[in-house]
């Protein structure tokens, strides 16, 4: 008896008897230049504007002031407990720990229920995309495992200016290395939202309902 795999592949080959060219690239040329940057005059400015469009709070902060800004934004969200990824910048950690907020470590990993009782998380990011107002996490140690930026209701994310690219093609180019390493990716465009009731966008379902993005310049 043939396996389902062999049978499906066999059906496909029978179905494609009319295709005689065996090289996919020669058979169907794709007239698209991959990885191109989009022509944008003020990339950072557009990034800020587009993230704000999703009703996230955005602020440009000089690199030296980031630790202070992280604490200020955490307080603005009303958080009293915060979890920090193990690999977060030492200066940010020091500032948060000195702030009087209760700081939890994810080492050893917090249980789902413990994480569900944490108010906020602070992370770095891997890439920012100006055109779409997106930041992408590749979950290296300065961003933490995926659950950290999902279960707590408030997320303060710091994106470095040199991480912000023009558009999706450039971002996909930069992220290829992370995927090759087997890292998962999370693309975030604003706080969690739904349009499921009458196609009206409502912010805030299961992911963090409050999102603050600091652009370190």
């Amino acid at each position: 008896m043939s396996t389902a795999r062999d049978e499906i592949l066999g059906r496909i080959r029978t179905a494609l008897r009319d295709v005689t060219e065996t090289d996919p690239a020669r058979d169907v040329p794709v007239a698209w230049q991959y990885g191109r940057a989009t022509d944008i005059a003020d990339v950072l400015g557009l990034f800020v504007e587009r993230v704000e469009d999703y009703r996230a709070v955005v602020e440009r902060v000089p690199v030296a002031d980031v630790p202070e800004a992280v604490v200020r934004h955490l307080r603005d969200t009303g958080a009293t407990t915060v979890v920090l990824p193990v690999g977060i910048e030492a200066a940010w950690r020091a500032a948060v720990e000195a702030s009087g907020l209760e700081v939890l470590s994810d080492e050893p990993a917090l249980s789902h229920d413990e994480l569900n009782r944490v108010d906020a998380v602070v992370t770095a990011a891997a890439v920012g995309i100006a055109e779409t107002g997106t930041f992408v996490l590749d979950h290296r140690p300065d961003q933490g495992r995926r659950a950290l930026t999902l279960v707590p209701d408030r997320h303060v994310c710091v994106v470095r200016a040199d991480q912000v690219v023009t558009d999706v093609p450039e971002a996909v180019g930069r992220l290829a290395a992370s995927v090759a390493e087997g890292l998962p990716l999370t693309w975030v465009s604003g706080p969690s939202a739904t349009s499921d009731i009458e196609l009206n966008r409502v912010e805030g379902v299961h992911g963090p309902r409050t999102l603050h993005v600091l652009v370190a310049v």
């Binding site: 990716l185 693309w187 465009s189």
Partner: peptide, 21 residues
Amino acid sequence: STAERMNPYTTIWTGPTPGDG
């Protein structure tokens, strides 16, 4: 689909990641 520049969340995973998910 949702007529947005980008949907709020996209997840891309490449097999299991130790300690994550």
